[in-house]
Design a protein around this nucleic acid. Sequence first.
DNA 1: AGTATTTCATAGTGATTGATACGAAATGTA
DNA 2: TACATTTCGTATCAATCACTATGAAATACT
Lengths: 206, 206
Amino acid sequence: MKLADTPPRKTGRPLSFDREDVLEKAMLAFWKSGYETTSISDLTATMGVTAPSLYAAFGNKQQLFLEAMRRYAGDRTAMETAMMDAPTAREAVTKMLRGAAVLYTGEATPPGCLLASAAATGSPEAAAVREAIAAERREVREIIIRRIETDIEKGLMSSDTCPRTLADLTLAVTQGMSVLARDGADRDSLLAIADAATLGWSIYEI
Amino acid sequence: MKLADTPPRKTGRPLSFDREDVLEKAMLAFWKSGYETTSISDLTATMGVTAPSLYAAFGNKQQLFLEAMRRYAGDRTAMETAMMDAPTAREAVTKMLRGAAVLYTGEATPPGCLLASAAATGSPEAAAVREAIAAERREVREIIIRRIETDIEKGLMSSDTCPRTLADLTLAVTQGMSVLARDGADRDSLLAIADAATLGWSIYEI
DNA sequence: AGTATTTCATAGTGATTGATACGAAATGTA
DNA sequence: TACATTTCGTATCAATCACTATGAAATACT
């Protein structure tokens, strides 16, 4: 499934940097300061790459962000199978929320969620970036919805359950945890939120 | 309690605009596009005021935002008394969440929450603005915590209840609803989230 | 070595950023 | 009417924005 996105480089001066390495640094820069508020000079400074090299390697700022975002979001199918493998939807969601709590309070990464922080607002020029992030969220939402529907079909949850609402609530808690992490909330606080978020699900359990 | 912040204007050319009116427009501009990503020329265009007049009336961009933010946040004590007047903490929080759902999906205002959107990220220069917003959130958090503690003292909620966690969860849901509203979620979806957010509180009720 | 190819660093593009200098215009007071 | 005071519009400031033109440097192939 991995495409050979390395072009046929036959000759010429070799790259003086590792593409994945500087992409990682760019991701961290965007994670820390957002999309529009991270300037090219910020990026070149933290990536250790001059502007012309950056543009030659990644196209432009938006394409660089989208690549960084894909690297951040990781393999969507991996998360999907993990959620489907959990014994119940509630456990799957709790696991996901606790994973977010840990990710948002990592010591080696900026606080919060890259996607939640990067483009909360912005000028019309950045609408494409916001839409890409929103699409990512919609995918996660669909995964959660399907997982809850699975439990309903299995008879584990009441047919009165509204999968959309519980999925939206889960997404809202996730995004909110990112905000609190940026405000300085510690890991234990976020884990407590993750556990408390699904307490209400008990009334739907059979 | 209202201070006379109008300086002793005795003579000179009169102001050609209503200060509160243009402040309202500035608030909407920040609400729509955030703090750093709303430029002075954006502001002068929507406010109908030239740059020198803007700086004469409000100081600089940061002070203008802080004034707009205070106007948005409104009177904090009013919210506090409203929450204390509600029969139970759970009803108070649900009311607050539903109020947020309505506010974030208003037709005359941009989607989402001004405070949640304006400074999710940003350059180090905007740290003061982010801190002001974070302080606002901490105040709301304390109000919620005190309201829950009141219920515990009254014997309406179990002493096992962790007021901090429930307050953090409430804040997280609020901020998350703002993100979903920006993604296009409609009012009914957000109201459903607001109602679902406190379902888990039932296990603490006596 | 000579050549083709690719990346490198330097230096700069026009546009936009937040913020002002300046003099004309509009008021109250004398 | 004359003056003090304040705000007005115009025109602009240095700094930064995303981005690139240009030629030297470094490789592979002949």
